[in-house]
Amino acid sequence: MLAYLVRRILYALPILIGVNLLTFALFFVVNKPDDMARMHLGVKHVTPAAIERWKQEHGYDKPLFYNPASETGNAFTDTIFFTKSVRLFIFDFGNADDGRNITYDITQRMWPSLAIAIPTLLVGLLVYITFAMTLAFFRATYIDYAGVILAVVLMSISGLFYIIGGQYLVSKLLHLVPISGYATGLTAIKFLILPVLIGVIGSIGSNSRWYRTIFLEEINKDYVRTARAKGLSERVVLFKHVLKNALIPILTGIVVILPMLFMGNLILESFFGVPGLGSYTIDAIRQQDFAIVRAMVFLGSVLYIIGLILTDISYTIVDPRIRLGGS
């Protein structure tokens, strides 16, 4: 087990290096720091001096890879590549364009993101599984048929519609909860209800339909026939035999996104004015703050890889057939 973990983490390193090089290429090779400065300053104010000043303020006034003229005498570390890319590996994300420390911002902003993401995940899971089980129970009847059509209709509606419609109906017309904003402590609940609700409803269609397929796939397996031949009722067959098997793909499918919950939901947070990492990212993209985007890309891939490793581990926990490391 330990050897397996070590191996997985070693395998993850090249991937992170790849991500790093890719983003470096996108941000510094395709466009030179000069281009970036020119864009930030606006076309009208561009003077060579202004560009130099901007680059100096933001730490882009160094060569990309090799700096023979380095004052500290370190020709490799005193470069853009080292200060902006390599340092990501020790989670030193540097400063945003407005001078704030990105690492500090991330630690502050991940909590509101989690406050939305975790309830959305849990409530959603409950709702989707219940809905899908109901459809599977009534399979090949009109209830199932109508349920599937409903799911297809729901998944055909743009996510933005759920948000805009929800805000308009619940907040503006019915005045049940505030339109947007955030608070700490228990008062946060009134700000969270609507985004969580919309987050759940937004993916009810696709998820329920997917889970239904998983359930039906299990129901057609031989062991279900064995269970029926024992004289068990359909309820026991579904809840004891089918659910237990179907939960394996469902739960392990969720594990991979667990770490990503930190990153927050971009659209929801931005619409509801929640100061989480999602809205942080969106604001950065809108303000073209490349330092933050780079940091989030790196953080995202680290979390994704953690998710992959957790998935493998979770398989060994829920599925007796799988043992790590061995073949």
Binding site: G18, V19, L22, T23, L26, M263, M296, V297, G300, Y304
Partner: peptide, 15 residues
């Protein structure tokens, strides 16, 4: 795996 590990929105944003 490398491409997949970058959250889609962020990769699109970066590009």
């Amino acid at each position: 795996t490398t491409l997949n590990s970058i959250p889609g929105v962020l990769l699109i944003a970066a590009a």
